[in-house]
Design a protein around this nucleic acid. Structure first.
Lengths: 146, 146
DNA sequence: ATCTACTGTAATTAATCAAGTTACATCAAA
DNA sequence: TTTGATGTAACTTGATTAATTACAGTAGAT
């Protein structure tokens, strides 16, 4: 498949909404920052709205975060966009009549689950606020070099 | 994309080789356990050989683990099959002239890296030996119920 | 009231990727 | 030398996702 950038782009949208919360934000303006089409942005925003992360109103270009950025973690955004998708895929079609084939996927599932939880714990340690602060510091550094 | 089961199938192959190390193992026999074609198995075995996890000899059906199963971790197998593939995809095409678009992917990259390492540390905790023992215990449990 | 600009969403297209398949050269061993 | 393997390249098929097209519904200014 084409690799999915939904998670990254969704984080981008939320950060953008927060950073530019004082100006009018049409899906077109956001799309210009993410470098995609306005429809793709609106589609992702629909997902974020369904997950309770933003509030939008049809017809008006005023998306708002539904929570304080310190209350939104990368994991919240991950769940919103990817749900419970595994990060390591099992092969559910192995031969059940073989000792290995009949047991391995179930066993692997528990190991994968442990690894997935470890990754998600890390995602849960970072808030949207942390991310935005880091972005702004990085930008200051860029400016100081010119 | 279709989700890739290379990692899971490669683990399967290695476990199968170890469990049935005393009998002749053609790619056809292994394919029957993984429930795929012999060519797919040989392709994966080529990758595992290149990574130094197995030894094979063209023409003879005698694949062997190149290391003791207690010396092969799930992470070794992950690296062999997936290399340094990210588990969370960045969008490398965001607008560089925007404060958010110009900095976010680089910042996200570090957070993703932390999460990826956390997951890999977990994968590195489990050896092929552990996996096989768990499979065999699970099989014993199944048998006892009949 | 009615433009204009915008959101929400469905349907289609195009690109990408992995497994499956076909084909065949090469090697091992009886 | 025949049979049964491996190794690998080339092509096909299926699945997935962003991009695109189209359009109905809403908000707000004039």
């Amino acid at each position: 498949m084409r690799i999915s950038t939904r998670f990254s782009d969704s984080i981008h949208i939320l950060a953008f909404i927060e950073v530019y919360k004082d100006i009018k934000l049409s899906s077109d303006v956001i799309a210009n920052s993410v470098n995609t089409s306005a429809v793709v942005i609106r589609r992702l925003m629909g997902v974020l709205r369904a997950a309770g992360l933003i509030d939008t109103k049809q017809g008006s270009a005023e998306p708002k975060l539904a929570k304080d950025p310190s209350e939104i973690t990368l994991l919240d955004i991950y769940f919103a966009t990817e749900g419970n998708k595994p990060i390591f895929e099992l092969d559910k079609n192995t031969n059940p009549d073989c000792i290995v084939g009949g047991n391995i996927q179930e066993v692997l599932g528990t190991y994968y689950e442990d690894a997935k939880i470890a990754a998600k714990r890390k995602l849960n340690e970072t808030t949207l606020e942390d991310l935005i602060e880091t972005i702004l510091v990085k930008q200051k550094y860029k400016n100081s070099k010119n």
